[in-house]
Amino acid sequence: MRAVQITEFGGPEVVAVRDVPEPRPGAGQVLIDVARCGVNFADTLLRENAYLASATLPVIPGIEVVGRTADGRRLAAMIPNGGYAEKAVIAEDAAFPVPDGVDDVAAVALLAQGLTAWWLVDHTTRVRPGDSVVVHAAAGGVGSLAVQLAKLRGAGRVIATASTPEKREFALSLGADAAVDPATEDLTGALCAANGGEPVDVVLEMTGGRVTDQSIAALAPFGRLAFYGMAGRIEPERVSPRELQRRSITVSGFWLMNALTRAETLVKAYTEMSAQVTAGELRVVHGGDHPMSEVRRAHDDLSGRRTIGKLVLDPHR
């Protein structure tokens, strides 16, 4: 079968389409014909061996797939790797049945990115009706869903940040009440100004560096910041226990891999979001449907932050 295989770490040039053996399902597993596989920022980190979990070469990247089994069932699932391929093996007890009203791109988007956004809003920060919520990188896969989920949970004001005017307009079209340029020198002041001059209750943050530091400074007493990535690759400096205590604020981390043992909760989340997509309450943005032969371009666009919404690969093109 055709698959993308990495045999050395590096830039987009190291991802290449090759002929590899078809995987064989073991006990409790099933083989699917992959209709779409998700492309995530984490894949670019794996390619460089800079992800939270180290990789062993050779490796086929891709942790999200949707496709059909030999008996015709349509399933979506997260897998350790192997998604950038025409066939993939998934664990049956970790697979989500996909309703007819959810297309392949949405089915994939609701996996790593959808489940992350859902967990951040519902569990990590526990957004309550009336809360003011800052969503950084609001035009991305997680951010675009988090903006909408926060509004569906009754957030009083959702403040999006995005790097270009077009992305900020896009975030507003998803329901954000205000949009801010994260490059603003006084980001703390800009976030508070977007909240009517008041500190904010919740921040969903995946940039790192000064963005994290200034977001913490923007938190109200009992505010919560959830840190779920570091796209800027610069460690924040402001996480001081005394500062946390002084304002009774919470700074927490989240990595979806730790939630995979909570199967019942994830099934609930996926089922709930699928129903919202079908009902038109939750919009999944198609950010690029690339042939697998264009995987390098997909990685380059993602690393260069030129994308909006969910990127996928079609392994059969």
Rank of each mutant, 00 (worst) to 15 (best):
A194F: 12
T207S: 14
A269Q: 00
T184K: 03
E243I: 07
E264H: 08
P182G: 09
I159K: 11
D177Q: 03
D177T: 04
A179E: 08
A176F: 12
L152T: 02
E235L: 14
D213R: 02
G229M: 11
V203S: 02
P221M: 04
P165S: 08
T250S: 15
P199H: 14
C192L: 06
A193M: 12
R247W: 15
S240F: 15
S173R: 01
A220K: 06
V200Y: 07
A263K: 13
A263S: 10
V158K: 03
E166N: 07
G208D: 10
W255N: 05
L219F: 10
A269K: 00
E264P: 06
V211R: 00
A217N: 10
A231W: 07
K268L: 00
S252K: 08
R242H: 08
P165R: 02
S173A: 10
G175V: 10
G223Q: 05
I159M: 13
D213N: 05
G197D: 01
T188V: 07
S215N: 03
V158C: 10
V203G: 01
Y228M: 04
R210K: 06
R210Q: 12
E243L: 13
G209V: 04
P221V: 06
E205W: 05
A155C: 09
R247C: 15
V267K: 05
A179P: 13
A171R: 05
G253D: 09
A176D: 05
A155F: 12
I249D: 01
A231C: 04
P241M: 03
E169W: 14
M230S: 09
A155I: 14
G196M: 09
D181T: 07
P199G: 10
F254Y: 14
L260N: 05
T261V: 12
T184Q: 10
S248G: 08
L204K: 04
Y228P: 11
K167R: 11
R238E: 07
G223L: 15
E185N: 02
G232F: 10
L152N: 01
I234W: 03
T265E: 05
A190F: 12
T265V: 15
T212A: 14
I249E: 00
G156V: 12
T184E: 12
V203E: 03
A176C: 11
K151S: 05
A176L: 08
S252Q: 14
G232L: 07
E166I: 13
V267N: 11
G189Y: 08
E235H: 05
L152W: 07
A178L: 04
A231M: 14
G175L: 08
Y228H: 09
N258H: 14
P236N: 02
R224W: 01
M206K: 01
V203P: 09
Q245L: 15
T261Y: 02
G232R: 00
F254V: 04
A178M: 06
P199I: 13
F227I: 00
E185R: 13
D186C: 08
T265I: 01
A259P: 06
G253C: 13
P241R: 02
L187F: 15
A155D: 10
M257F: 12
V158A: 13
E243S: 13
P165E: 09
R246T: 14
G197N: 05
V202D: 00
L191A: 04
A269P: 10
S240M: 07
T184D: 08
R242Q: 02
R224F: 05
P241V: 03
V200P: 12
G197I: 12
P241A: 00
R168Y: 11
T161H: 03
P236Q: 01
R168M: 07
D181K: 01
M206T: 04
G232W: 07
A176Q: 01
